[in-house]
């Protein structure tokens, strides 16, 4: 697969390394959100924004390296699109982190249990995305990684159903409290959809290279 992807320079290796770093930062951001909620640690929650900025910087570097000539031309848009998708995952995690401060008073009891489950599963999905990305360049089987991501996503879907029911039971103090809480639930539960899309995109890249 390397032969098909590479134009023969080391620029590709730089990009692959940067994408791996991008996903590692994504995992760190997702872990920080989970830990911040679990331990009620505002500093951890705040660190998500810093990690998102780090991710942005890596993404810009990847895109510029790609357009400076890394990879054969036909594969460049695919690589860029995958990186943009990973960036959307960052955005979802950052949104959830920013909204959590205001939503926190309502994240209690079963809602809290379910939110923590979703946050943990989001991290596991990011880790699986990292494994899947590594597989793309090692002739491994991408299908089972993609299936694992879909299994995680189905689990989150089931929890999302419960959360939507529980969301309707809360008594917000104001319209804005209710809206912020609903947006927080949307943000944290939609992260998995984007990871699944990114994983599907890896599969598309894989197939297009055959």
């Amino acid at each position: 697969m390397f032969k098909k992807l590479f134009s023969g320079t080391s620029a590709e290796e730089v990009v692959i390394g940067e994408i791996a770093a991008h996903i590692r930062t994504l995992i760190a951001a997702s872990e920080a959100l989970h830990e911040g909620i679990e331990k009620n640690n505002p500093e951890k929650i705040a660190s998500v924004s810093d990690l998102e900025r780090d991710g942005d910087s890596i993404r810009r570097s990847i895109i510029s390296h790609v357009f400076e000539g890394a990879f054969l031309p036909f594969i460049r848009p695919f690589i860029c699109r995958f990186v943009e998708m990973a960036d959307q995952v960052f955005d979802g995690i950052e949104d959830a982190a920013m909204l959590y401060g205001h939503a926190q008073p309502y994240v209690t009891g079963e809602i809290r249990t379910n939110v923590l489950k979703v946050a943990a599963l989001n991290t596991q999905m990011c880790e699986m995305l990292q494994i899947a990305f590594g597989t793309l360049f090692s002739n491994g089987d991408l299908r089972d990684k993609s299936l694992a991501i879909r299994i995680y996503e189905k689990r989150i879907d089931e929890i999302k159903f419960d959360l939507l029911e529980q969301e309707r039971m809360i008594q917000p103090a104001s319209f804005w409290d209710g809206r912020t809480f609903a947006r927080f639930i949307d943000a944290i539960t939609q992260v998995s959809d984007v990871i699944e899309d990114a994983s599907d995109y890896l599969q598309i890249i894989n197939v297009s290279l055959r």
């Binding site: 699986m128 494994i131 089972d144 990684k145 299936l147 694992a148 299994i151 995680y152 689990r155």
Partner: peptide, 10 residues
């Protein structure tokens, strides 16, 4: 599901 995820992780 658990077995498939574990296999995907190696």
């Amino acid at each position: 599901n658990g077995a498939l995820i574990d296999r995907a992780k190696g």
